[in-house]
């Protein structure tokens, strides 16, 4: 997978299980980070030309370009709306959180 995935983190249960000093495995995600999202981006794929400007600009890197259509990892999208604002084809719309699932 290109993006790190959420893992079930095993916290140390004794001093012996603590790492040597304050370091931890890199690229470890233990929880989603989308709680502050108010609006969600919805891509109208027919309009999308895959110029990938949104993919480049997204501060979270949540847009995926591996497949035919762009995908958004909603576990880490904060709903900032930058992608929608910058899309040269207006192919992304921000909708109220919750409504995206209904469409």
């Amino acid at each position: 997978m290109a993006k790190p995935q959420i893992v079930k983190f095993k916290f140390p249960e004794s001093l012996e299980e603590m790492p040597l000093g304050p370091s931890a495995a890199a690229g470890i995600l233990t929880e989603p980070n989308a709680g502050w999202r108010v609006q969600s981006p919805v891509i109208e794929h027919p309009k999308c030309t895959k110029c990938l400007l949104c993919w480049v600009l997204c501060p979270e890197g949540v847009i995926g370009k591996e497949n035919e259509q762009l995908e958004i990892d909603m576990n880490y999208c904060k709903g900032c709306g930058l992608c929608a604002h910058e899309c040269p084809k207006d192919a992304i719309t921000m909708v109220q959180e919750g409504e995206a699932d209904d469409q």
Partner: peptide
């Protein structure tokens, strides 16, 4: 091969254990 983040932020929940170490 096993990248780590060093000297990371340890919250109140975990900080004291590192001092005990």
């Amino acid at each position: 091969n096993h990248p780590r983040s060093f000297c990371m932020t340890a919250s109140t929940e975990w900080n004291m254990e590192f001092r005990y170490q």
